[in-house]
Design a protein around this nucleic acid. Structure first.
Lengths: 296, 296
DNA sequence: GTCATCTATCTGTTTTCCAGATGGAAGCTA
DNA sequence: TAGCTTCCATCTGGAAAACAGATAGATGAC
């Protein structure tokens, strides 16, 4: 009896993704590979993990229990790999950090000034990926660290830590129908919402969507321009609003159901398996301890 | 980066066995297979686990740390498999229990009478393996449960639980030089000791050896016969002494350094991975709760 | 110096896993 | 109800990984 980690990984991915096909897409494998791995695991364990009564398999009670244990095994393996990589105590020559544009830039200056003083020879690259999923960049190795919005679920390979909250404000143009007193929830639905476009297929693509009709735009600045021209309404953070030339033409509707601030949690993410050099560790510790203040 | 369980298993086995060759024998694999697995693990982790300065590799400090984590991963996998097998709630048709002869037989009668009443259709086989290692029998599946002496280390696949203590008494013949008053420790060393022979290569082969000169005999009864004839001295348990025809010719030396009883811990062992049916579970619980009394 | 034992490497074979194709079924929509 | 999309299990051919066994060189015990 073997029970390999690949089998457990396929099993956990299938349970979390909801189907073998979705798990295959997540793992970058063929659907038949996932199906076979799960089936082999059931044979090795002598237990049926999924019920095949419906089109997409559903976890059995035994499967629910085994799933918890499988997660633990995979986590212990990640921890072991993380421990191994901590032995490579060499300062990395290059560091790539992906930061969601929602993170207030003013907080970055002092942080990276200290970083430069502490690590004068590290070549730093900061990404502000608007059209890509930060977690995916960290996961596939294109970035060493990431700061992003909280997501419902992260790949098991990623560790995370909340680093603060950023308030979003709902804005529209002066002539927009929402630029009046006493705006109700249903009215938001009826008017076009302009959202940030991403090329990711993750659930983050649909974050903060409220309206039935939406536009997708790949630029915060262009979004505010469109809002100014009354094409629709949008969420934006304070520092983006303050920096926009359209600021004077934007108004915040008088929402009857909310104080007007929508706090969004920002999280630092890293890959558990990837070697953490002293520079990344330093930055991670600082980002983790430098709480973003909602009062700028 | 993969890091498979087979790699971790090879690594742990090598660390515990002291060499790749010994690990290969333990795992039933070719030496080259273990060597390659460990080498691949080092590559995958990016850490050197063994130093190759001497003939047999020695753990590096990083290897020591990783070893602990590897054990945890393997243990979690065993636990998962054990959980899976607990879902097979079917009473087994046959049960094989290996019990070291040191276990007092009088305690077995009532126990198995209850067992027969509770599981009338289970075919029971009791082994009293004198020439074989109980733990090895359980490990390779020749026995479902085992009762044995405590050992320095058990294979990771085995679970264990202390079930009691059995006093051993030191005996010699009436005409033996030790059959006098005030026997010192050094004198035990100088006279031949007769030990139980096993065909196992484990450390249990050397258990309780004190004297420089020893004989190995594959029978408790024959050992007492030889003791009776003054060939040497030996340890024996009360119930073996009481049942031997040589009883009246045996004396217990007047030890100056000890009360005369050498308590030996008996342990119940089982294979974590093997499905535990209700019968085995019942027996395990009873053996675990029925403490052997030193006062018969 | 001899012998036993160990490790790393190599080779050929076996086993395992993979992607892709396919057929059948479930579920959604018009 | 028909058509379409999506999913799963199975099959096939190929690739990759792991294996056992052989071997050379080195270490260590006697």
């Amino acid at each position: 009896m073997t029970v390999s980690l690949d089998q457990l990984q396929a099993f956990v991915a299938a349970a979390e993704a909801g189907s073998f096909s979705a798990a295959a897409r997540r793992l970058g494998k063929a659907q038949s590979a996932v199906s076979t791995q799960v089936s082999n695991l059931e044979t090795d364990l002598g237990v049926q993990l999924f019920s095949r009564a419906t089109r997409t398999p559903a976890l059995t009670p035994a499967g629910e229990r085994i799933l918890q244990e499988a997660r633990v095994v995979l986590e212990r393996r990640e921890h072991l790999i993380g421990l191994a990589s901590s032995f490579e105590q060499r300062i990395e020559s290059r560091l790539i950090v992906a930061i969601d544009e929602l993170y207030p830039e003013h907080a970055l200056g002092a942080l990276f000034a200290d970083f430069a003083a502490n690590f004068p020879h590290v070549e730093l690259e900061l990404l502000f990926p608007l059209m890509e999923d930060v977690s995916e960049l960290v996961r596939n190795g294109a970035a060493d660290l990431g700061v992003m919005w909280r997501q419902e679920e992260l790949p098991v390979e990623l560790g995370f830590q909340t680093v603060g909250w950023v308030p979003l404000k709902l804005v529209c143009g002066r002539g927009h129908p929402l630029a009046k007193e006493k705006v109700e929830w249903e009215e938001l639905k009826r008017h076009r919402q302009i959202l940030v476009a991403t090329r990711s297929t993750s659930s983050s693509k649909r974050r903060l969507r409220i309206a039935a009709e939406v536009w997708w735009v790949e630029s915060h600045w262009v979004i505010l321009e469109m809002v100014k021209h009354g094409i629709g309404w949008a969420f934006a953070s304070d520092h983006v609003i303050a920096a926009s030339p359209a600021t004077s033409d934007l108004v915040m509707p008088d929402l009857q159901f909310d104080a007007g601030d929508w706090p969004v949690a920002l999280e630092l993410v890293w890959h558990k398996q990837r070697p953490h050099g002293p520079a990344a560790e330093w930055l991670r510790a600082r980002l983790g301890s430098t709480r973003i203040s909602t009062a700028l």
